[in-house]
Write a protein that binds this DNA or RNA. Structure first.
Lengths: 115, 115
DNA sequence: CTTATATACATAAGTTACTTATATATAAAT
DNA sequence: ATTTATATATAAGTAACTTATGTATATAAG
């Protein structure tokens, strides 16, 4: 698995992507996140395991995610959900991301319309 | 000088910010870039010297920028302009950035409209 | 039947782009 | 006289990645 595009750009946005997907879908496991991101972005964003799993562990350690392992088809899946703290944080980080994109819009003359 | 917000998010976007400002303004020096970014973003993006100057040096080394030192008020200024390669690259990186923001829009449900 | 692909997680080593801190130097303002 | 603004540079440390490797099961292909 490898992500060809957006070499530097993904930096800093992986956390909010994970948090937002969990906010939307309630309960997901790591591999599922990689597949959903791939589908939604038409294969343009391909998360690497080496980035995703440490990011999940970090978010769990920080108390934003709760994890529970489950056996499905004799294979271990680690499901994640947002904690209470995570539900608060996702809103904060989302606002930050929007604000940053608004500023990038001004600097790069992208003519975005944030609704 | 320090940038409070967008801790991770700025990563990967500094290069395109520099290139785009030079495309727009033709000829700028480092300190001027920090001030223009500060003004345009209402003080929300504050470039650090430790990030800016190495980034300028790297872009110059890669042949995207041309530099010339000038004395103004007895102080040395290093002016940068886009090279031919830089003029091509800024368009490529701009498209990449737009594409990435479009994908982030899909993942985060931001409802932006890229024109 | 054995090999490749998909599913599923984890981590170690290396790279890169930052932050923070420090350094130098002149000009202008307090 | 001291601080703030202007102007550039670099060294040390950190965080978030990439790349590579490892383990293990299920399924499809040849």
């Amino acid at each position: 698995m490898d992500s060809i595009k957006y070499k530097g750009l993904l930096k800093g946005s992986l956390q909010i992507i994970i948090l937002k997907l969990l906010q939307k879908n309630g309960r997901m496991y790591g591999y599922e996140i990689t597949q959903v991101v791939k589908e939604i972005t038409n294969g343009e964003i391909l998360l690497t395991e080496g980035a995703l799993y440490p990011a999940l562990h970090k978010l769990e350690k920080e108390g934003l995610l709760a994890a529970s392992v489950e056996l499905v088809d004799n294979r271990a899946r680690k499901y994640y959900t947002l904690s209470e703290k995570g539900r608060t944080e996702v809103e904060i980080k989302l606002k930050e991301t929007k604000s940053f994109m608004g500023n990038l819009d001004l600097l790069l003359n992208l003519n975005l319309k944030l609704t």
